[in-house]
Each structure stands twice: as structure tokens, then as C-alpha cells.
């Protein structure tokens, strides 16, 4: 998709887009397992150095403009941060650049809260081994 001028994006922003720009926990886990999305952790480098999830890829938000070549246009790009505020900035940027993008509304804190105990085991069974989030 070609880039979208911000003015045009706002003019066409409607109830459908308001829903389409978001993805919740259940759909995220399902779409990731099916290989339909590219999951991007957009936190700062120090945050990623402290802890990370084994899924997806790390591209800091402030490096995103220079690293668009790492994104897979065939997939929906799902952005995530601890909550969702920065993820939404990343999602908006990518959308305006012409990517199909959604932000994860639960945030990484909700994701790791879900992925403990038996849920971690069951999800790993579904998606196979993980080697840790890459840079």
C-alpha cells in the first residue's frame, strides 16, 4: 500500500478503523501462532535489555523510520510496548507509511501476566520452541 497523507487518514478515520487498529490478547496469540503477524517490541534499548519476550522482534520506536526494510509487507505488523501508548504511535506511523499495522491493546505487561504457569506450557506446545526475542 502507498503511504497515506495524515490529513487523508484522519478524514477517513471512522468506527471501523477505530476497531481495526487494535488487536487484543486472544487474537494476538492466535494470529502469531498462525504466522499471520509480525510482532514488534518497540521499547527503548534499555527496556529490552532488562527483560524481553521470546516472541517477535525488537525495533525501538526511535529507530523504526530507519529500519522499515526489516518489516514484512505480507504480514500485519503488530506493535507492542509495556502498555499501549507508544505502540499506538508506532502503529500510526506504520499505517501512514502504507503498512498494515495494529497495536496490541493489552500491552506486554498483560502478555507476560497471561504467559505464566500452564498457559506458558500450553502456548509453547502450540507454537513450538522459542529462542528468545531478536534485535
Amino acid at each position: 500500500m502507498p503511504p497515506i497523507p495524515f490529513d487523508d487518514y484522519l478524514r477517513r478515520f471512522d468506527y471501523d478503523e477505530r476497531l481495526a487498529m487494535k488487536i487484543g490478547l486472544e487474537e494476538l496469540l492466535d494470529s502469531y501462532a498462525k504466522g499471520e503477524i509480525q510482532l514488534i517490541d518497540i521499547r527503548f534499548r534499555e527496556e529490552h535489555a532488562a527483560w524481553s519476550v521470546g516472541m517477535g522482534q525488537h525495533i525501538p520506536l526511535n529507530e523504526l523510520p530507519d529500519r522499515l526494510n526489516e518489516l514484512d509487507r505480507a504480514k500485519t505488523i503488530v506493535t507492542m510496548c509495556p502498555h499501549y501508548d507508544r505502540a499506538e504511535i508506532a502503529r500510526l506511523f506504520l499505517t501512514l507509511q502504507g503498512y498494515r499495522s495494529r497495536y496490541f491493546t493489552g500491552g506486554m505487561l498483560k502478555l507476560v501476566d497471561y504467559l505464566r504457569g500452564d498457559n506458558a506450557r500450553d502456548y509453547l506446545k502450540r507454537i513450538g520452541p522459542l529462542t528468545g526475542s531478536s534485535n
Binding site: A50, W51, S52, G54, V112, R116
Partner: peptide, 13 residues
């Protein structure tokens, strides 16, 4: 935590 948990999210230290 059990290995399945440290596989899905982990601290680097």
C-alpha cells in the same frame, strides 16, 4: 519458573 515460562519471557540477568 518452569522452563516453558522462561522461554516465553525472560529477564536478561
Amino acid at each position: 519458573r518452569v522452563p516453558e515460562e522462561t522461554a516465553v519471557w525472560q529477564f536478561s540477568f
